[in-house]
Design a protein around this nucleic acid. Structure first.
Lengths: 191, 191
DNA sequence: TTTCCGATGTATCGGCTCGATACATCGGGC
DNA sequence: GCCCGATGTATCGAGCCGATACATCGGAAA
């Protein structure tokens, strides 16, 4: 999940870890408040070991040359050609078949880099999963209503409401997507 | 998080792992579809090592005596007195200060075993966290609106909507809680 | 001026949870 | 008699998190 997000951000330009985390926070702010460094740095290692990204030690040879920090300078990461391929591959793969799947949000956040057919496939997959969960909650509210206390039932109702709302949201997105007109997408400094 | 849920369920009677997972699925259905065995069994080990629960090997000395399974019979877990104390302690502790905190739902699901003051404290804590997240998303939508593409913005809007909805839900619950009248709580076979 | 603090920055560690997998039994339908 | 789905216990590797450590830098307060 982080793999996709990191590749997606580095696709827009080289960055060091701290900056990556901040960008992640705004780009994925709707999914998760912030990414832990305990996840980020190991992910960067994995990506580097796999050859998807490379490390460029801080001091650029260009304009502002002074090595910004004396000891252990900032490490700038850059996506490779293989990394871009990997990114496209990950964009197409739907996440696991669970409702709690956090990767849907990541996929969605990078929809402006995804072709319409894939967008539709991902949206419909998500809809199916949310619908399944919705049915499960409806059953639970109907079947075992007497065996659960009022608070638990209230929680289920709230969960059911959230599911119904998300399904409607997805329906709108799917309809909009099918209508051919992709929304006014302004790809962020797409290069 | 699982610790609280398992203690809460075993509080209502002894159970073996498989049954525990099923009960968990209905009780926490609004939080998480199902709990992985890869989480459940290690949790049972931890609880047992800490002395919160004990293991009663399957065959009861009572009526249906035949050892239900020949090899490796089902293992029935039972909460201890210390376990009940621990459960009450956990009920009072609010989870971490994050929005994604899954333990809020678990706390809520066991509200019928919680005193009203604690219920209010937990609800207000949750409200504060969701409000903070809501403000963060509002800022992001206002401030960096031009720097993000249409899909990312749509995702943020949906997240913001969910936050506002949850705050309203919490407001209602808090008002109801403050009005003194605890909802028609029917504690499930409280013993 | 010195001191202190918050932002910037990299990194590890233990612990929890997940999905996949393995293995075994039981009851019922074909 | 056979197979299959539900029941049942259990482990493994991997991902992610929160806590923690350490270090620098600019500016505000003292």
């Amino acid at each position: 999940m982080l793999e996709l997000a990191v590749l997606g951000l580095l696709h827009e330009g080289p960055m060091h870890g701290y900056e990556l985390r901040k960008q992640l926070a705004t780009k994925l702010g709707a999914i998760r408040a912030a990414i832990s460094y305990g996840s980020l740095y190991p992910t960067l290692r994995r990506l580097q070991a796999a050859g998807w990204i490379t490390e460029e030690s801080g001091a650029k040879p260009g304009a502002e040359a002074p090595p910004l920090t004396s000891k252990r300078g900032r490490v700038v990461y850059k996506i490779t050609a293989e990394g871009k391929e990997r990114f496209q591959e990950l964009l197409g793969n739907a996440g696991p078949e669970t409702y709690e799947d956090p990767s849907f949000g990541v996929h969605f956040a990078f929809f402006s880099r995804t072709d319409q057919a894939t967008r539709l496939r991902i949206l419909e997959g998500r809809r199916r999963r949310v619908e399944e969960r919705r049915e499960g909650l409806r059953d639970a509210l109907g079947r075992a209503a007497e065996r659960l206390d009022a608070y638990t039932l209230e929680l289920q109702r709230h969960g059911l409401d959230a599911c119904e709302r998300e399904v409607r949201w997805l329906e709108e997105l799917i309809a909009h997507e099918r209508s051919g007109k992709p929304p006014d997408v302004t790809p962020p400094t797409s290069r």
